[in-house]
């Protein structure tokens, strides 16, 4: 699998759905963080290609599918 993402990749997270499991911040700490209450924060909505594998893992492992990638041909 290629580690590249498209230049227009946009990462969004649904903070209403988020249950604070922190899988995303664990998989891709450069892209995701948690706020004081434990909910997802997107630190970097336009991550570079080197983050792509970690990002895919984060999307895959989020237990409530709260993370979306747009502008991708093969992503979420």
């Amino acid at each position: 699998m290629s580690a590249d993402g498209p230049a227009d990749a946009l990462v969004t997270a649904d903070r209403e759905a988020c249950i604070g499991a922190a899988q995303c911040a664990y998989s891709a700490p450069a892209v995701f963080d948690q706020d004081e209450d434990g909910y997802v924060l997107v630190r970097d909505p336009h991550p570079g290609p080197h983050e792509w594998d970690a990002l895919r893992e984060a999307v895959d492992l989020c237990p409530v599918q709260a993370i979306r990638l747009s502008g991708t041909a093969d992503g979420a």
Binding site: I19, G20, A22, A25, Q34, E36, D37, G38, Y39
Partner: peptide, 15 residues
Amino acid sequence: DEHRRLLNPDFSRKR
């Protein structure tokens, strides 16, 4: 979900 919301802060990564 109501209960979970009350508890998440105590188990966040920062905490």
